[in-house]
Simulated scan of single mutants.
Amino acid sequence: MTSEVAESVGRPRDARIDSAVLAAAAEMLVDVGYRKLTMAAIAERAGTTKTALYRRWSGKAELVHDVAFSRMTRLPPSSGEVADDIRTLVDSARELFASPVTRAALPGLISDMAADPELAVRVHAGFAEVFGALRERLVVAVERGEVHPDVDPDRLIEAVGGAAMLHALLLVDGQRFDATWAAQLSALVVHGVVR
């Protein structure tokens, strides 16, 4: 029996438990941080059992990944202007990494991704899906000569995502991840550094 068939046998999963667990984990991440977060505490706050959690997620890292990055949505269709599309990418990265939940999850997830190649693959796949439309737009822009021919779309997406992640990690408690950062990074990416 394949795993797909095995998963379909028996009672269907209760979506209310999924929602309660994700909400509890998000609250607790912000309250206690990644290191102190436990599956047992999440289950208790969600009003369910650890067994129910482990039926859905292999462990804390996978659950926190879903909590932190499940809000990622595909970027809107291209505006037709490369500069506007880049600003949209930067704004989306800022929104994701400015979230208190994402900021609380990042240090632990980065550590766990280094130790768990499968988790790293899932995280990368999620970002690839979200930014896929922009990547396609940038490929066309390079072909049309709208951007420098040596611009690699994947490196641009990594540069923006990496800048947002680093900024989120360096913020001190109480500091805001505001729109000024997004405007400054957009200007840097669109206009470059050297005159």
Rank of each mutant, 00 (worst) to 15 (best):
M1A: 14
S3G: 10
E4F: 10
G10M: 06
R11E: 04
R11G: 05
R11N: 02
R13K: 05
A15I: 09
A15Q: 12
R16Y: 05
S19T: 11
A20F: 06
A23Q: 12
A25W: 09
L29C: 09
D31Q: 11
D31H: 09
Y34S: 11
R35F: 12
L37V: 13
T48N: 09
K50Q: 15
L53R: 08
S58C: 11
S58A: 15
G59Q: 09
G59L: 10
K60H: 10
A61S: 15
E62D: 15
H65N: 12
D66I: 06
A68H: 07
F69M: 08
R71P: 13
S79T: 15
E81D: 14
D85Q: 08
D85G: 09
R87L: 13
D91K: 02
S92V: 02
A93E: 08
L96M: 14
T102G: 08
L106G: 11
G108K: 15
S111N: 06
A115L: 13
F127G: 07
V130Y: 02
A133F: 00
E136V: 00
V140D: 01
D150C: 00
R155F: 02
L156H: 01
A163P: 06
A163V: 04
A164W: 01
M165Q: 10
L170M: 11
D173F: 02
D173K: 08
R176A: 04
F177A: 03
D178Y: 07
W181D: 05
A182K: 03
A182P: 05
A182H: 04
Q184W: 04
L188K: 10
V190N: 03
H191E: 13
G192N: 04
V193K: 14
V194Y: 04
